[in-house]
C-alpha cells in the first residue's frame, strides 16, 4: 500500500509537464488548470499610488483562447493591470488567478513567466547585438539554468520551431541579421516571436502595433487572429482600426475599473463610453 503511494507520487512528480491525472481529492494538480474555461480572472483589484487610484475594484475574466482588446483613455489603468498580472506591482486588495489554481499575487516575475504568461512591453526590447535567430533561440522554452546553456545545441525539433516562428513573424529572410538593425516594426515582431518561443498560455501585449506601417499592422492583425484559440491574448491598443480588425470582445477601462464590455459596435454605441472618450 505504502509502496503504491510512493510510486504514484513519484510518477506524478516526474510525469511529463505535470499533465499526470491528479487522483487525490486534496492534492492540487501542478501546472495550469484551465478546465473551467477561464484563463485569467481578476477580482476586485485595487491599486493606489500616493492616493491616486490606478485600479479601482477591477474585475475581469478572460476565457481560454480568447483575443481580448483592452481600450481606454490615458490613465485608465491598462498598464498597471498588466503590472499586477506579471508580479511587478502588488495590489492593495483583490485576487488574481491564472487558471483555477495559480495565485498570481504570490509569484515573482520569473515565476509568472514559468507559469505560462508572456508579456510584451510598450517599447520593443530585443537583444540588439545578437542575430534574429539567436534572439529566438534564447527565448526557446527549454532548461534555462546556466550550466545547461554551456553545451546547449539546438535539436532538430527545436530548429524547426525557431524556423516556424521566423516564418510566423515574417522575418524568415532576416535570420542572420543583427536585431538592432531591424526596423521598429520588425523589432516589435521579433519581440512577439520571442514570446511565442516561450509558448505561453497567455500573452499580454502592450501596444503591439505602435510605430508599425499600415502593411505591418495588417500582418500583425492576421498573426494575432491566427494565434487566438491556441493561445489566450490580451491586447492593449490605442489604434481603433487595429482593434476593429482583431477584436471579438472589447473591454473599456476608465478610472481603474471596467466601464463597458462587448463587441466593438456595442461599446461604441454605449453612451458612457462616448462621454468618456469625447468629454461631456
Amino acid at each position: 500500500m505504502v509502496e503504491m503511494w510512493m510510486g504514484q507520487i513519484v510518477a506524478q512528480e516526474y510525469g511529463a509537464d505535470g499533465d499526470a491525472e491528479a487522483g487525490y481529492g486534496h492534492v492540487r494538480k501542478p501546472g495550469l488548470d484551465i478546465s473551467h474555461g477561464v484563463a485569467l480572472y481578476l477580482d476586485g483589484i485595487s491599486v493606489s499610488f500616493d492616493g491616486f487610484r490606478a485600479l479601482n475594484q477591477l474585475t475581469l475574466a478572460i476565457d481560454v483562447g480568447e483575443l481580448r482588446c483592452i481600450i481606454g483613455p490615458n490613465g485608465a489603468g491598462k498598464t498597471t493591470m498588466m503590472d499586477v498580472i506579471t508580479g511587478k506591482t502588488r495590489p492593495d486588495s483583490g485576487q488574481a488567478w491564472f487558471g483555477q489554481t495559480i495565485d498570481l499575487l504570490k509569484l515573482r516575475e520569473a515565476e509568472v513567466v514559468a507559469a505560462g504568461i508572456g508579456r510584451k512591453f510598450q517599447k520593443p526590447t530585443v537583444f540588439e547585438d545578437l542575430s534574429v535567430q539567436d534572439n529566438l533561440e534564447l527565448a526557446l522554452k527549454t532548461d534555462k539554468r546556466a550550466r545547461r546553456t554551456l553545451f546547449f545545441r539546438l535539436s532538430g525539433e527545436q530548429r524547426r520551431r525557431v524556423e516556424e516562428v521566423l516564418e510566423l513573424i515574417h522575418l524568415h529572410d532576416q535570420a542572420a541579421r543583427r536585431a538592432g538593425d531591424l526596423s521598429h516594426g520588425q523589432k516589435q515582431w521579433l519581440e512577439i516571436g520571442m514570446l511565442l518561443m516561450l509558448n505561453p498560455k497567455l500573452l499580454l501585449l502592450d501596444e503591439p502595433v505602435a510605430g508599425m506601417t499600415d502593411a505591418e499592422t495588417e500582418r500583425t492583425a492576421g498573426l494575432f487572429t491566427s494565434l487566438a484559440g491556441k493561445h489566450t491574448l490580451v491586447v492593449v491598443e490605442h489604434d481603433m482600426e487595429f482593434v476593429r480588425r482583431i477584436a471579438h470582445k472589447v473591454t473599456v477601462l476608465h478610472e481603474g475599473s471596467v466601464l463597458a464590455e462587448g463587441s466593438l459596435e456595442q461599446v461604441q454605441a454605449n453612451e458612457r463610453v462616448v462621454e468618456v472618450y469625447l468629454g461631456r
Binding site: V113, V126, L130, L138, K144, T149, L150
Partner: peptide, 23 residues
C-alpha cells in the same frame, strides 16, 4: 556558446532576459 550569448543579452536588456525565464 549559448551561455555567452545570454551574457550579451544580459548586457543589452537584462529585464528581457528575466522575462525569457533566465536567472
Amino acid at each position: 556558446s549559448k551561455f555567452g550569448r545570454v551574457l550579451t543579452a544580459i548586457r543589452d536588456a537584462e529585464s528581457r532576459v528575466m522575462f525569457c525565464g533566465y536567472d
